[in-house]
Amino acid sequence: MAVIRVHDVTKKFGNFTALDKINLEVNQGEVYGFIGPNGAGKTTTIRILLGILKATSGTAQVFGLDAWADAVEIHKRIAYVPGEVSLWPNLTGGEVIDLFVKLRGPNNKSRREELIERFDLDPTKKCGTYSKGNRQKVALIAAFASDADLYILDEPTSGLDPLMELVFQECIAEVKAAGKSVLLSSHILSEVEKLCDRVSIIRQGRIIESGSLQELRHLTRTQVRVETAQPIPNLSELAGVYDLQEFEGGATFQVDGVHIGEVIKYISNYGILALESAPPTLEDLFIHHYQKEG
């Protein structure tokens, strides 16, 4: 069942097209990664899903309801953490967390205290004195303390230290285990790789790739290092082989996902002594896409 369904959504700011017919579908119980460089349209998409911006055309639905018209109904069941957390300088972190939790629905006290402890936040300090990371913690605690069905997180860990990032990843795992859905926009690709079931890559207002990480990997190249008994002739002429570097008794090269079978078959004729292959990281994937398109 789709929790988020975005169909052909376009958003224009004056003459500038921020989003160009994007499509997105997040299913129940899924952690969905949303990646792309700055200014690609991630935050605009999220704001349309929140009913803060109105799509110029297309439909954006959350829980089968219209993101714009039924915003309040939808928001009773979602928790949101913005990328840039701006808080009231003269309220304390504890007050803001309580306010946010209260504005969503029933207050869950025990969860709040537990999260404050896990994220190591001093709730008596005024928000004006918090660092970026601490403001982010306030928003994260308020989000995870509430019992939502969908978590929309816009680059939630950009200011957190590695320890807190771990706590964050635990929280996501718990939420996922409870069958909730998450839309996670992020720059930290290793994090997306670790947490997400499926990802979409957005670039200049267009979704250029969507699917599971496995599916996406097929579209890119695998790094291969091989040592053989006999030298491999004409390796560079095989389809799908790139960046070939030969050395005494072996070679390293990249190979397209779709050609990997043929290439391995070919080199096995020359007596493989050692073979290492590394799947492309999301980072490779990402850079691959940008180089291809750019």
Partner: peptide, 15 residues
């Protein structure tokens, strides 16, 4: 800066 309350008063919990 002085520390403030760790909890929001009941009064604060609405727009």
């Amino acid at each position: 800066a002085k520390p403030g309350p760790a909890h929001a008063s009941r009064f604060l919990q609405s727009p």
